[in-house]
């Protein structure tokens, strides 16, 4: 073996440069994607592409003729569906990650400040939630009849309800990572001199938590939220694929693939685009989150 046993990178500076290049690339990609899904659909309509009306004479058309990516099994333009599905999937990802981060931050701060039994309880809960088989439980939760919870039927039928429900579901399981990071940060910041000074000046625990400790945790919270966006996009797509998330006709990257399996033999390309969009989005979020973690904590820099 020619490699040295002690890990001496080929060139540490080159490795760091390469990784620094990934963060802006991921950020630019996500920004471009956000712009595309925001302004793409109206632009496409202006060009005469139709993503809504069903046209059975134009089923499963190949890319090209008046439809840049072809048409789906109901004759709708695939590019428009992809962009509109992106709106839903990205909105769910962002909202779900923010809600999960908010819950995690609140619980992490509580655990870090309360110490003792409350801390132990919250930390055991994070361990257990991290170990749970997520999808079977999400499937059970998604199958609950909202009518029995007193939600009016016309609200249940709306697309906004689907989005709200899925955001609540993923946030329910997405908080542990943030909670752990925030608790660890709280414990180390609590010992800092400026926090002790604030305490000596008579600041209440709530004020110390919100005004002195929380701002110092912006780094880890941002990292956890960025990574969570990718996980939520994945979770939404799986649930929608199974028919338990965003329901058609509202498109999402997940439910666009629900019928792809029956059509694999006729139109294998149909399954390609939504999945690729999910893969690229989640990879970009993960790369960006990793780079942010490295920037926030240079000591954790990996060779």
């Amino acid at each position: 073996m020619s490699a040295s046993v002690e890990p001496t990178p080929v060139s540490p500076a080159a490795g760091a440069r390469r990784r620094r290049g990934r963060a802006p690339a991921s950020a630019v990609f996500l920004l471009g994607l956000a712009l595309a899904v925001a302004f793409g659909p109206p632009l496409c309509r202006w060009f005469g592409l139709d993503g809504e009306s069903i046209d059975l004479l134009r089923r499963l058309e190949p890319p090209g003729t008046g439809a840049p990516l072809g048409t789906d099994e109901l004759g709708r333009d695939l590019l428009v569906r992809l962009l509109e599905g992106g709106r839903v999937s990205l909105a769910v990802g962002l909202l779900g990650a923010l809600l999960a981060a908010a819950i995690g931050t609140a619980l992490g701060l509580l655990a870090g400040f309360a110490r003792g039994a409350i801390d132990a309880l919250i930390m055991r809960a994070t361990d257990i939630v991290l170990a749970l088989p997520l999808l079977p439980l999400l499937v059970v939760l998604a199958a609950v009849d909202p009518g029995k919870l007193g939600v009016p039927a016309e609200l249940v039928a709306s697309a906004a309800f689907d989005v709200t429900r899925i955001v609540l579901l993923v946030a329910l399981f997405g908080w542990p990572t943030t909670a752990r990071l925030v608790r660890a940060g709280t414990l180390s910041l609590e010992a800092a001199e400026f926090v002790r000074a604030a305490r000596a000046l008579g600041a209440s625990p709530l004020r110390i938590a919100l005004r002195h400790v929380l701002p110092g945790l912006a780094g880890p919270i941002t990292v956890a939220t960025t990574l969570a966006i990718g996980q939520v996009v994945l979770g939404e797509s799986v649930l929608s694929f199974l028919g338990l998330g965003i329901r058609p006709p509202t498109p999402s990257w997940g439910n666009m693939l629900t019928h792809a399996q029956e059509l694999l033999w006729h139109a294998p390309l149909l399954a390609l685009w939504p999945g690729l969009a999910i893969l690229l989005t989640v990879t970009a979020c993960n790369l960006l989150g990793d780079a942010l973690a490295e920037a926030a904590d240079p000591r954790a820099r990996r060779p």
Binding site: S237, V238, Q261, A271, P274, L279
Partner: peptide
């Protein structure tokens, strides 16, 4: 490792079918 982290499970399964069963 990154791709394995980020790929949607059902899409990976569909791709496997397209590649090894259909094509």
């Amino acid at each position: 490792a990154f791709v394995a982290f980020s790929v949607p499970s059902f899409w990976l399964a569909l791709l496997a079918i397209v590649l090894f069963a259909v094509l």
